[in-house]
Structure formats: structure tokens, C-alpha cells
Design a protein around this nucleic acid. Structure first.
Lengths: 223, 223
DNA sequence: GCATATTTGTCCGTATGTATA
DNA sequence: CTATACATACGGACAAATATG
């Protein structure tokens, strides 16, 4: 495990142990190795990564701020478990940001390439039957949509929001039902964006988001 | 200094040393005790607050995430110094969030009380000639506007954005010129909101934000 | 409810690496 | 190039809170 960190350290010269550790933990959370609600015990992780407790605690603090972990005083850290209210709020933010991003659209934006790439990645994932990868491709697409706003702060906000949303994937039972229907709809949205049709894209996008929210909340209540 | 922390710790029983320390540092940054660009040396602060380096480093990380500090690897932390690009991006976010918040307005919202209070605080500050307090009141007003979105995540985003913006106040020379003209305009915006006139409020707000941005960028370039 | 074991919260000493005068 | 100041990282220690039997 620690060999992994060392390799990264050599590759990216300027990265601290804390950041590398946080990246490794983030990956495990996103991939579902650590599941929502699970407690992360300091000593166990310290041993498996061969880092000091202080470094681990700083990495925890980083991920807590990204809302991937929750910290309970004197009890430790747990993988975040989103409530229905959280999901609703995440979609509130998505509607605000994504719809605004496409609203004032004129001409083919640079981000269209990123979107096309995300769609292609989704197609590949579907063929492979890799539903987690399909979910990832879907988020990549919408991250690209959000980046139409051309704002670093909005980008960061959405990176966090999408990371949060991935926590849901590990809680609901059937990821296929969750992601598959949206591949084609992303293609429609992309077509509208490439045509420079802002209002049309916004209409499709809003409906997409409402359907997606409804489906997740439904699946979530029964879980 | 440490007596201060201890008093707070007794009051709010369930607060960690790190959070109390972060709050104390945040206050000093916002009040301009630590100025933009200034380096915060670990040992000095450890001594003055009588906390451990570990606690201080965690507090630093918290404030770095709030964008009040910047962290340079192996060089330490500095009070953030906003660039013109940062200011422009902050206003991009403000336009996105604040304008959307008032756009779909129906009836008198709960937050109108908060806005009215902020306006009153602004009036008092103006009488006292306390321009820093006037700036604070102005931010309180617009934080209340943003909270029309009724989203915890948007609220947090805007709290950070406004905290960043306060860093500018300590860099430009004349805070009075920066804040005073906007008291009356806030009153106009509030009136439109109280009347349930969403589009009218949005028009006033957008113009306010554009003027404010222009003025700050101008003052900023010459500083 | 009580006593014990476990885990976190905090602090310290030290060794190493990095930036800069 | 050297010296100095500082950040980075580690491991140990003890107190405090929590979980467990």
C-alpha cells in the first residue's frame, strides 16, 4: 500500500504525504471500498498506509471538508451517508448551475469536446456492462456542462457536489437502472449545445435533472 | 490569548481546540490584524495561543479550504491576496447565485427580515463612521439575498465567497468610497423584494453587482 | 449502573527535507 | 556554497471521551 504512495510521490514531485493519502482515501470512497456509514479507524489505516497518525488526521480533515467524510467529536470519522434532504439540495444546486450554464449559449463552446468524450466513455462503459464507469462518465458529462460557466469557483463547487452524489451510487441497489437511461438524453443535450441552442438545451437539461432526482430519491427511500 | 480560547471552550462545550483556534484566526484575518500577503509563522502563533503545532496545522487547513489562507508546500501559509481574476470570478458567482435567487420571487420571503436588519446595521455603521462595519452589513444583506435560494450548499458557497471578498477591503485604500454608495441601493433592492417584484429586483441587483465589481477592480489595479 | 478496554484529542521531541539570505 | 530558518513527517505519551462487557 505504501509503495503506491511512494510511486506517486516520485511522479508528482510536489505533493505532500497528506495530499497523496487524501487522494488514495478519496479513490477508495468513490469506488465503494469504504461504504457510506462505515467508520474509518485511525489505527487501522495508519498501519495499512504506513503513515503517521498526524498525517492521517490532516487527510481526514481535507476529505471532511469535501463532504465525503463526517467527523464526530471523540467518536471518529465515518464515510458520509447522504440523507434525502442532501440529495434534494444537491439537485437544487445542479439545476441552478447547469441550467444557467447552458442558458446564455452562443456558438459551439470549447467544452463540447469534453462532453463528446464523456458520451463516448459512457458508450464504452455500457458495452462493458460497467455501471459504475457509466455513472462516472455521466458525471464527467455534467461537469463539462457546468464548466460552461467558465468559473473556477463554480467548477470546484460542482466537483464536490458530484463527488457527494457518487456516495449515493453505493447505497442504492441497482446502478444500471440509475444511469443507463441517461446516456441517450446526454446525447440530445449535447446536440442542442453544439447547435448553439441554449434554451433548447436548458429545457432538456431541466427535465433530465428532475427525472434523475426523482428516480434517485425513490430508490433512496426504499434503501 | 489562550485565556480567550479557554473562555470560549467553556461556553461552547462541544468545540474542539482546532475549531476555536480557527475561529480566532479567522476573526483576525477578517478584521485585518493579519493582512493579505502576510506570512503566518507556525512557531509564533503556537506560542501566542499556547496550542500544539498539530492543532494549528489543522486550523490552517480549515482556513485554507475557506480560501482565506494559501498554503505553499514547504514554505508555509500566507494570508490570501486576491488577484483581479479572483475578484472577477467572485462577482461571476455572485451574479449567478444572487440574481437567480431573486428571479423566481413570489410573495414576501422570510429572509426579508434579515435583509432589513442588515440595512439597519448599515445605517448605524454609517452614522458611526465605521466603514469596516458598513462593509460587513453590506455582506450580511447580500448573504440574506443569496439565502433566498434556500440551499445549505449555496449558503456555504456564498459565506466563503463573501469572506474572500472581505480580504479586498484591507487592500484598497478608501473603504468609505467602496461601501457608502450601496446602502441606498440595497434599500431599493429590498423594497422590490418585499413587493414580490422578482424581475425588478433582479435588474437592480445586476446593475449593483456590475457597478460594485467595476469599482473594486478599478481600486484594486491602482493598489 | 459500574468497571474496563478501546479510541480519539492533544501535545511534545526529534529527524529530515526544503527554501532562501 | 554554507548557514539558517522553517515546514514536513514521524512516533511516543498521556488525558479525555466513548464503547463494551
Amino acid at each position: 500500500m505504501d509503495a503506491e504512495l511512494d510511486a506517486d510521490r516520485r511522479l508528482i514531485d510536489r505533493a505532500s504525504t497528506v495530499e497523496l493519502l487524501a487522494a488514495a482515501l478519496r479513490e477508495r470512497i468513490i469506488k465503494g471500498v469504504y461504504l457510506p456509514g462505515e467508520r474509518l479507524v485511525e489505527e487501522t489505516i495508519v498501519k495499512s498506509f504506513k503513515v503517521s497518525r498526524n498525517s492521517l488526521r490532516e487527510a481526514f480533515r481535507l476529505l471532511t471538508h469535501e463532504r465525503l467524510l463526517v467527523h464526530e467529536l471523540n467518536r471518529g470519522v465515518f464515510v458520509r451517508k447522504l440523507t434525502v434532504a442532501d440529495v434534494v439540495d444537491v439537485y437544487r444546486v445542479r439545476k441552478l448551475v447547469e441550467c444557467n450554464a447552458v442558458r446564455s449559449l452562443a456558438g459551439r463552446p470549447r467544452q463540447a469536446d469534453d462532453m463528446a468524450e464523456a458520451v463516448a466513455a459512457g458508450d464504452r462503459a455500457k458495452e462493458d456492462g460497467d455501471w459504475l464507469a457509466l455513472g462516472t462518465a455521466n458525471m464527467m458529462f455534467h461537469q463539462a456542462v457546468a464548466s460552461l460557466a467558465e468559473s473556477p469557483r463554480v467548477d470546484e463547487l460542482m466537483r464536490n457536489v458530484f463527488a457527494e452524489l457518487r456516495l449515493v451510487f453505493h447505497t442504492v441497489a441497482d446502478p444500471r437502472r440509475l444511469h443507463e437511461p441517461y446516456l441517450d438524453r446526454n446525447k440530445e443535450i449535447l446536440a442542442a449545445i453544439e447547435a448553439g441552442d441554449g434554451p433548447g438545451a436548458e429545457r432538456l437539461l431541466l427535465k433530465y435533472l428532475e427525472d434523475s432526482e426523482h428516480r434517485i430519491v425513490e430508490a433512496y427511500r426504499s434503501a
